[in-house]
Computed example of a mutant assay.
Amino acid sequence: MKTNLLLKCAVFALSIVTFSSFATVTNLNDVTTTLDIQEETVVNAVYDGHDESGYNFTVVDEDDNESTITFQEISAELLQTYDLKSESFVGKSFTVTYKTENDVNTITNLTELPQY
Protein backbone atom coordinates (compact mmCIF):
# COMPACT_ATOMS: atom_id res chain seq x y z
CA MET A 1 0.00 0.00 0.00
CA LYS A 2 2.80 2.39 0.90
CA THR A 3 4.57 1.49 -2.33
CA ASN A 4 1.43 2.22 -4.34
CA LEU A 5 1.01 5.63 -2.65
CA LEU A 6 4.70 6.41 -3.12
CA LEU A 7 4.47 5.45 -6.79
CA LYS A 8 1.39 7.66 -7.30
CA CYS A 9 3.14 10.62 -5.62
CA ALA A 10 6.24 10.14 -7.76
CA VAL A 11 4.18 10.00 -10.98
CA PHE A 12 2.22 13.10 -9.90
CA ALA A 13 5.41 15.05 -9.07
CA LEU A 14 7.05 13.97 -12.31
CA SER A 15 4.01 15.03 -14.34
CA ILE A 16 3.98 18.49 -12.69
CA VAL A 17 7.67 18.98 -13.51
CA THR A 18 7.17 17.73 -17.05
CA PHE A 19 4.12 19.89 -17.80
CA SER A 20 5.61 23.00 -16.24
CA SER A 21 8.71 22.74 -18.41
CA PHE A 22 6.79 23.28 -21.64
CA ALA A 23 7.49 26.72 -23.11
CA THR A 24 5.13 28.81 -25.16
CA VAL A 25 6.51 29.49 -28.61
CA THR A 26 5.59 32.73 -30.32
CA ASN A 27 5.79 32.83 -34.08
CA LEU A 28 7.76 35.99 -34.84
CA ASN A 29 6.18 36.17 -38.28
CA ASP A 30 2.87 36.95 -36.57
CA VAL A 31 4.32 39.93 -34.71
CA THR A 32 4.22 43.20 -36.59
CA THR A 33 6.60 45.93 -35.49
CA THR A 34 6.47 49.38 -37.00
CA LEU A 35 9.63 51.42 -36.87
CA ASP A 36 9.34 55.11 -37.66
CA ILE A 37 12.76 55.73 -39.12
CA GLN A 38 13.31 59.32 -40.09
CA GLU A 39 15.77 59.86 -42.88
CA GLU A 40 17.66 63.10 -42.93
CA THR A 41 17.72 65.41 -45.92
CA VAL A 42 20.65 67.67 -46.82
CA VAL A 43 20.22 70.87 -48.85
CA ASN A 44 22.24 73.97 -49.61
CA ALA A 45 20.14 77.02 -48.81
CA VAL A 46 20.28 80.75 -48.13
CA TYR A 47 19.03 81.96 -44.76
CA ASP A 48 16.11 84.42 -45.08
CA GLY A 49 15.48 85.16 -41.43
CA HIS A 50 13.32 84.14 -38.50
CA ASP A 51 9.63 84.84 -37.91
CA GLU A 52 6.81 83.43 -35.78
CA SER A 53 6.58 80.32 -38.00
CA GLY A 54 10.27 79.40 -37.74
CA TYR A 55 13.61 79.73 -39.50
CA ASN A 56 13.25 80.36 -43.25
CA PHE A 57 15.72 79.19 -45.88
CA THR A 58 15.53 79.58 -49.67
CA VAL A 59 16.46 76.53 -51.75
CA VAL A 60 17.13 76.59 -55.50
CA ASP A 61 16.51 73.32 -57.34
CA GLU A 62 18.27 72.04 -60.47
CA ASP A 63 15.77 73.92 -62.69
CA ASP A 64 16.57 77.23 -60.90
CA ASN A 65 13.17 77.24 -59.16
CA GLU A 66 13.27 78.85 -55.72
CA SER A 67 11.28 77.61 -52.77
CA THR A 68 11.28 78.41 -49.08
CA ILE A 69 11.64 75.79 -46.37
CA THR A 70 10.60 76.80 -42.87
CA PHE A 71 12.18 74.92 -39.98
CA GLN A 72 10.17 74.94 -36.79
CA GLU A 73 12.82 73.33 -34.58
CA ILE A 74 16.57 73.62 -34.08
CA SER A 75 18.75 72.54 -31.16
CA ALA A 76 19.92 75.07 -28.59
CA GLU A 77 23.49 73.96 -29.36
CA LEU A 78 23.17 74.94 -33.02
CA LEU A 79 21.58 78.26 -32.03
CA GLN A 80 24.60 78.99 -29.85
CA THR A 81 26.88 78.45 -32.85
CA TYR A 82 24.60 80.21 -35.34
CA ASP A 83 22.36 82.85 -33.73
CA LEU A 84 19.63 82.66 -36.35
CA LYS A 85 17.40 84.98 -34.32
CA SER A 86 19.77 87.84 -35.12
CA GLU A 87 20.07 89.47 -38.54
CA SER A 88 23.79 88.63 -38.89
CA PHE A 89 23.22 85.41 -40.87
CA VAL A 90 20.51 86.68 -43.25
CA GLY A 91 21.71 86.18 -46.82
CA LYS A 92 24.40 83.66 -45.84
CA SER A 93 24.57 80.22 -47.46
CA PHE A 94 24.37 77.04 -45.39
CA THR A 95 24.34 73.30 -45.77
CA VAL A 96 21.24 72.32 -43.80
CA THR A 97 20.65 68.78 -42.60
CA TYR A 98 17.11 68.19 -41.42
CA LYS A 99 14.38 65.67 -40.80
CA THR A 100 10.61 65.99 -41.08
CA GLU A 101 8.26 64.31 -38.65
CA ASN A 102 4.52 65.05 -38.39
CA ASP A 103 4.93 68.07 -40.69
CA VAL A 104 7.59 69.59 -38.40
CA ASN A 105 10.96 70.36 -40.00
CA THR A 106 13.84 70.03 -37.54
CA ILE A 107 17.40 71.18 -38.31
CA THR A 108 19.81 68.50 -37.10
CA ASN A 109 23.03 70.02 -38.46
CA LEU A 110 24.00 73.36 -39.94
CA THR A 111 27.24 74.39 -41.65
CA GLU A 112 27.94 77.84 -43.04
CA LEU A 113 29.26 77.76 -46.60
CA PRO A 114 32.07 80.10 -47.68
CA GLN A 115 30.97 83.26 -49.49
CA TYR A 116 32.44 83.83 -52.96
Rank of each mutant, 00 (worst) to 15 (best):
I74E: 04
S86K: 00
D51P: 10
I107N: 00
K92G: 05
F19Y: 15
Q72H: 06
Y82D: 01
L110V: 06
A76F: 14
T97P: 09
T18C: 07
L5D: 04
V90W: 00
T106K: 09
T97M: 08
L78K: 03
N102Q: 15
L35E: 12
T108I: 13
Y98C: 04
Q38L: 07
F94W: 01
I16R: 03
S88H: 07
G91E: 01
T58M: 09
N29I: 12
V31H: 07
E52S: 04
F94P: 05
L84D: 14
V104D: 02
K85G: 12
S21N: 15
D61Y: 09
T95C: 01
D30M: 07
I16H: 04
Q115K: 10
T97C: 11
L84Y: 10
S75L: 02
E73F: 14
V25L: 06
T100M: 03
A10Q: 03
V96N: 00
E101A: 09
F12L: 10
T32V: 07
Y47H: 02
A23H: 13
D83N: 15
F89T: 08
L113D: 13
E77Y: 02
T70Y: 04
F94R: 09
N65I: 15
D83F: 08
L14Y: 09
V11D: 00
L84N: 11
I69D: 02
T33A: 07
E87C: 08
Q80I: 11
V42S: 03
F94E: 09
V90I: 03
E73W: 12
N65S: 12
T108W: 04
E40V: 14
E52N: 03
T70E: 04
V43N: 05
V104R: 05
L14C: 02
N105Y: 01
V90M: 08
D103H: 06
V46H: 01
V96K: 00
L35D: 13
T111D: 12
L35P: 10
D64A: 03
P114T: 01
T18S: 06
I107E: 14
D103K: 06
F89G: 01
K99R: 12
L79V: 10
E66G: 06
I107F: 01
V90Y: 02
E40A: 04
L79W: 04
G91R: 06
I69V: 08
A23K: 13
T32N: 12
K99L: 13
E87Q: 13
A76L: 14
T34S: 15
T111R: 11
N109I: 12
T26Y: 15
S53V: 12
S21D: 10
H50P: 10
L14G: 00
T100V: 02
T68L: 00
A13Q: 00
S75I: 04
L110M: 00
F57M: 02
I69N: 06
C9V: 02
V104W: 00
D63I: 14
E39L: 13
T106W: 10
K85W: 07
Q72I: 08
V25W: 11
E62W: 06
V104H: 00
Y82L: 03
Y82S: 07
Y82G: 05
L35K: 12
V42H: 08
D30T: 11
E62P: 02
G91L: 10
P114L: 04
S93R: 07
F89N: 01
V60Q: 13
A13S: 01
E66N: 09
E87K: 13
